[in-house]
């Protein structure tokens, strides 16, 4: 930090300098981890639903197998889409919202993002509720960091989604 910067910072405390914006593309500021959290809940829900699809009985004909395959495929497609969406949303927060000072204040940020990306890929590949819950938990951690940077307190609660899994909710209302 230069001596000039120190002087100006001191002056800023006495009498704040006006701000000159180096405006970004869209002065957005509209970020929320909610989409990523929803996507993770959807992954968990799809895993549950896929496991609940009745398997064709022994000796079932091609029609039953086709119906079964079709149902599994549709739910799997949705599971994969939402796992990818969770990764996408977290990438946006990481690349566009979080700033170097956030990473300094929350040193676990980068590794948690990395974990989300890995678990998101697992969420596509596997049919494992535990991994889905781990994905949601990693995203919840991102949400907690996110809301801390906004000085908004959070609570953990189970939303009425049929996933029986906790989500981090901001208390800004």
């Amino acid at each position: 930090m230069s001596a000039l910067h120190r002087v100006l910072r001191w002056m800023d405390r006495v009498s704040p300098a006006p701000v000159a914006y180096a405006h970004c593309d869209i002065p957005c500021g509209i970020y929320d981890p909610h989409h990523a959290q929803l996507a993770a809940h959807t992954v968990i829900r799809m895993i549950d639903l896929i496991e609940q699809i009745p398997k064709p009985a022994a000796g079932a004909g091609p029609k039953e197998w086709d119906t079964y395959a079709s149902k599994v495929s549709r739910h799997t497609a949705t599971k994969e889409q939402h796992a990818e969406l969770a990764k996408h949303e977290v990438r946006i927060l990481w690349g566009d919202y979080f700033k170097p000072e956030h990473a300094q204040q929350h040193p676990e940020l980068h590794e948690t993002v990395w974990k989300v990306l890995k678990l998101g890929s697992k969420g596509r590949q596997e049919l494992d509720r535990k991994q889905g819950e781990e994905l949601l938990e990693a995203i919840n951690k991102i949400a907690e960091i996110f809301w801390k940077t906004k000085n908004v307190p959070t609570v953990r609660a189970k939303p009425p989604y049929n996933t029986n899994a906790e989500t981090v909710v901001p208390k800004y209302a």
Binding site: H5, L8, R9, M11, D12, A17, V19, A20, A22, K99
Partner: peptide, 19 residues
């Protein structure tokens, strides 16, 4: 006149918090 810089469109010349 002095100004405090905010946002990132002038990087690397100017960064948020520069004057």
């Amino acid at each position: 006149a002095r100004f405090r810089v905010d946002d990132r469109s002038m990087e690397p010349t100017l960064s948020p918090g520069d004057y």
